[in-house]
Nucleic acid binder design. Structure first.
Lengths: 305, 305
DNA sequence: GTTCCGCATGAATCGATAG
DNA sequence: ACTATCGATTCATGCGGAA
C-alpha cells in the first residue's frame, strides 16, 4: 500500500507531502527531529467545504492531542508557529484560541510570543455591531527558552515605506528587481538594501492572496517565508501538519530547507504536489484504507460552478 | 473634608477628576449610568513608581472586583474598552490578560471584540529572543448584545486609513474619482460618491504620542477619541477609572461628552486638572483620610532624574 | 511593452426565515 | 425555544483584456 519502509526514519517523509491525519502520521516521525512547525489549521467552522468544520466548542479537545505530537517531534531548540483566529459566535469572540493557549501551557509549551498579522485586505461586509476583521494571530510556542532564532535574516530597510514595499514583494516583483539590477538601476536598489537595515517588529503587515483560484484559503507565501528565515537555517527541517495547498512546503523548498507536509484532504495533496514538483506524482499516503475525499452531498452543485 | 454632599448622585462627579481608588469611588456612582468606560490600567509590574506595581500573578484578582464595579455602573447599552498588553515574564508572555478575559466572562461580561492598536513607532530595543512589541490589545466588553455603536462617526477615506497618512496616492485618487464622476453614468456616479468614505476595521494604525512625558503611560488622544466617537453620542457620559494624566477626560470634553475621571495618584490628578481646566484647582477627593502619595523609599533616587 | 480599468473573489457575520 | 440555511452587505487586491 505504501512505498516506504522505515516508518521510524524521517528520511522516508523528507521533502514529501503525506496524505493523512497528522495526529497519526506524526507517530512515525522521530522525536526531537523538527526545527520549525509552521501551520494554519482549519479554523473552527471555517472551510466547511473542504474540511467539514470543527465546532468551536470542541476545537480545543480536537487540537490538543495533535499539539502533543507536535511537541514530541519538535527539537528542544525548535519553534511552533500557529496561525489562527477566533470566529464570532453569537455576537461574541469565541474563547477557543485563548483556551488553547492555556491548555498548551499545561502540556508544557512555553507561550513565547504572539505576532500579529495585520491583513491589508480583509473580508468585506458590514454589520451593526462590529467592523471587518483585519488581523490574525501568529502564536509562537517553544519547548525551551533557548530556542534558535536568526534575527538578521529578516531585517528590513528602515522606514515604513520600506516595510510596506518589502511586504508587497511578490514573485514577479523579485524577478523584476533582478532584471533591473542588470541594467544599472539595480545599483540603487542594492544600495537601499545595504543601508540602514533594522529589525522588524512583532506586527506583520501584508495582503491575503485572493487571486489563486486553485485553493480557497492560502496565506501569502511571505508569511511562512518570514518565519522559516527567522527560526531555521539552511538544511533545517520544517513541518506543516495542516499543509493545505502547500504554501509552507513551497517556501521551505525555495529557501533551501527540508520539509514534511501532512494533509488530510487528497485534493489538496495533489494541488500541493503539482505546485511543488510541477507535476502530478504518486506519493506515499498513510498506511490505512485509502479514503477518497467526498464532497458533501448538499455542496456538490455549488462546487461545480 | 469633601465639598460634595450627594454621593449617590453622579452629578457631583460629573466632569470632574476624582482622587481615589476607583473600586471605592465607584460605589458612589449609580448603576447603569455610564455610556462608555475607556481605560488603560496600570500594566502588571509597570509604572511601579506611581502605582506600586501589581504582580502579574495577582493581576486578575486585583482587577476583578474593579471590573465588577465597572459592570454595575455601565449602562446596558454601554461599552467597556480595556487597553492592555501582557508583559513578558521569564521569557514567556504572561497569561493574565487572557485569564482576565475568561474571568470577566464568568462575571457576565460579553467579550464582543478585540481591536488591535498597531503602534507605528514602538519603544526601541533589541533582545536575542524577540522583536520589539508593536501592538496592544483594545478589548471590547459589553453587558448586552444590543449596545450602542455609531459607526458613521469614524468612517475614513477610501484606501487604508493608515496608508492615507502617506498621502501620496490619495491626491491623485481623488482627482481620478472626480473626473470619473463627471463623465460617467448616473448610477456609477452615485456608487463612486458613496465609496468616498469607508468603514474602518478592527486594527487601528497610529503613532504613539511622544509629547506627553508627564504621564508614564500616555496613549495618543486619538485612541480615546476614536472609541468615544464610536460608542457615544454628544452629551453621553464617559468614565476612565484609571485616568492617569487625563487624556480620556480631555478627549471627552473636546467631543462634547461628559466625563468622570478617577485617579489614585494625587500628582496625576493635578496634572489632569491643569490639562483640562488650565489651572490648578481644588477638587473633591474620596472621603477618607487624605493620604499623601508616597514614593517608595528605594525608588526615590530614580524619580529625581 | 506599458498603463489603465473592469471584474471576480475572498479563514465573515448578521438577521430573517424555515423546520 | 432552538438549530439550520440563505441572502445581503462590503472593499482591497490581482488578473486579464483593452487602449
Amino acid at each position: 500500500m505504501s512505498n516506504y519502509q522505515l516508518k521510524t526514519d524521517k528520511k522516508d517523509y523528507l521533502d514529501k507531502i503525506i496524505h493523512g491525519d497528522c495526529e497519526k502520521v506524526l507517530l512515525d516521525i522521530p522525536e526531537n527531529s523538527i526545527d520549525l512547525i509552521f501551520t494554519s489549521p482549519p479554523y473552527a467552522d471555517q472551510r466547511v467545504k473542504t474540511y467539514g468544520g470543527i465546532s468551536p466548542d470542541h476545537y480545543v479537545e480536537w487540537f490538543l492531542p495533535k499539539a502533543a505530537q507536535f511537541k514530541r517531534v519538535l527539537k528542544p531548540s525548535g519553534t511552533f508557529i500557529l496561525n489562527i483566529k477566533e470566529r464570532v459566535v453569537n455576537g461574541e469572540r469565541h474563547t477557543y484560541v485563548i483556551d488553547l493557549i492555556l491548555k498548551m501551557r499545561e502540556q508544557g509549551w512555553l507561550w513565547t510570543e504572539e505576532f500579529i498579522w495585520h491583513k491589508k485586505n480583509s473580508y468585506p461586509g458590514k454589520w451593526p455591531n462590529r467592523f471587518r476583521d483585519n488581523w490574525e494571530r501568529l502564536i509562537q510556542f517553544n519547548k525551551e527558552k533557548n530556542f534558535s532564532m536568526y534575527q538578521e535574516s529578516v531585517m528590513v530597510p528602515v522606514g515604513d515605506w520600506a516595510k510596506d514595499r518589502l511586504a508587497k514583494l511578490s514573485e514577479t516583483d523579485k524577478i523584476r528587481d533582478e532584471s533591473r539590477a542588470g541594467s544599472g538601476f539595480g545599483k540603487n536598489v542594492s544600495n537601499w538594501i545595504g543601508r540602514d537595515m533594522v529589525y522588524p517588529t512583532n506586527v506583520l503587515h501584508l495582503a491575503t492572496e485572493t487571486g489563486n483560484k486553485r485553493h480557497s484559503a492560502a496565506f501569502p507565501s511571505y508569511l511562512p517565508e518570514w518565519f522559516i528565515k527567522l527560526f531555521t537555517k539552511s538544511g533545517d527541517l520544517v513541518l506543516d501538519p495542516f499543509m493545505g495547498s502547500g504554501t509552507t512546503a513551497f517556501s521551505a523548498l525555495q529557501l533551501g530547507r527540508h520539509f514534511i507536509g501532512i494533509e488530510i484532504n487528497a485534493e489538496y495533496v495533489q494541488i500541493a504536489n503539482q505546485r511543488i514538483y510541477g507535476k502530478q506524482i504518486k506519493l506515499p499516503s498513510l498506511g490505512e484504507k485509502k479514503k477518497k475525499y467526498k464532497v458533501p452531498a448538499n455542496k456538490k452543485s455549488e462546487r461545480k460552478k
